[in-house]
């Protein structure tokens, strides 16, 4: 203040000081304003902090042996386990197998859920026919379906893929439906008055308008696919991340379990990031200022 305005009088200086005193607590409180943005550096350092403190708590807990080291291994033993796991071929076989199952089950969900969701969201007839049914199935816990799936499809690859399909399809269907319904009625009406037929309105307006939301629904449903692949592999499998975790637990190889969990978390994080950045790139036209 004083350096920029060298001619400041004593009264002004005290006024400026008062103002400064009045502003400082307010700027500090700004970080806790509802839904208000915070500076980027603060956001990034808070993210780092949360990971770092988790690490510190873990290190501290193992150092003082708060938990048996068999269940919560030390950072050093984790490091050796990681070195072992990442050099072994099995990890990549497991990742590949799980990826294949998630890919197949999820792709099957997507190709059916998107067209069907558009139909349900656009036509009351299809809504009446399918939505209550989908809601009903959605509430059946997926692991409870395992015996049925095994009876129906055996214990091979296909029943695992079907488990992922059941787990993601009905959720995704209802999310797509909701996105389609959110397309403003005015957009449909204006399309009709511009000469668009119903089919053209669906293809050129409903589909295009709902696309960003549907894409985000894919991101969420994709996460559940990874949950169900682990569930599927706990039953009967010869490879896969879930299968390997179960096997490690039989031999009490907890450090390796933790590494595999870490790998699962990382895969999720990377895929989520890819979905998000692809969404931003594909749908740059979305007006984020609008609710």
């Amino acid at each position: 203040m004083q350096t920029t305005k060298p001619t400041v009088s004593p009264e002004n200086a005290s006024a400026a000081e008062n103002e400064h005193a009045r502003i400082t607590p307010r700027t500090r409180r700004k970080w806790l304003l509802l839904r208000q943005d915070i500076p980027g550096w603060l956001y990034r350092s808070l993210v780092t902090c949360s990971f770092l403190s988790l690490f510190v708590i873990w290190w501290w807990a193992t150092e003082h042996e708060l938990l048996n080291r068999i269940f919560l291994p030390t950072p050093e033993s984790m490091l050796t386990a990681a070195r072992g796991v990442f050099t072994e071929e099995t990890l990549w076989i497991d990742v590949g197998a799980s990826f294949m199952r998630v890919g197949a089950g999820f792709a099957l969900s997507v190709v059916i859920a998107i067209p069907l969701g558009i139909l349900i969201g656009s036509f009351r007839v299809f809504e009446a026919l399918l939505q209550p049914l989908a809601e009903f199935v959605r509430y059946i816990p997926v692991p409870a379906l395992i015996p049925i799936l095994m009876v129906l499809f055996g214990i091979g690859e296909f029943s695992k893929i079907m488990l992922i399909w059941v787990g993601t399809f009905f959720q995704l269907l209802l999310m797509v439906t909701a996105e389609v319904r959110r397309v403003p009625q005015d957009l449909l009406q204006v399309s009709y008055t511009l000469g668009a037929s119903r089919l053209e309105t669906m293809r050129l307006v409903i589909w295009r308008s709902a696309m960003p939301g549907i894409f985000d629904a894919l991101r969420l449903a994709h996460g559940w696919a990874w949950t169900y692949v682990v569930v599927a592999e706990l039953i009967a499998a010869n490879e896969g991340l879930g299968y390997r975790i179960l096997k490690f637990s039989r031999f009490l190889q907890t450090p390796k379990i933790w590494i595999y969990l870490l790998v699962l978390g990382l895969i999720g994080l990377v895929l989520d990031f890819l979905f998000r950045s692809l969404n931003r790139r594909l749908f740059h036209w979305v007006d984020t200022a609008k609710p």
């Binding site: 403003p184 005015d186 957009l187 009406q189 204006v190 008055t193 511009l194 000469g195 307006v205 295009r208 308008s209 696309m211 749908f283 036209w285 979305v286 007006d287």
Partner: peptide
Amino acid sequence: SRERGMVFQSYTLFPW
């Protein structure tokens, strides 16, 4: 029909 064009109060441009 395209014979009768309409302009709405809400913004109805296709954002994409």
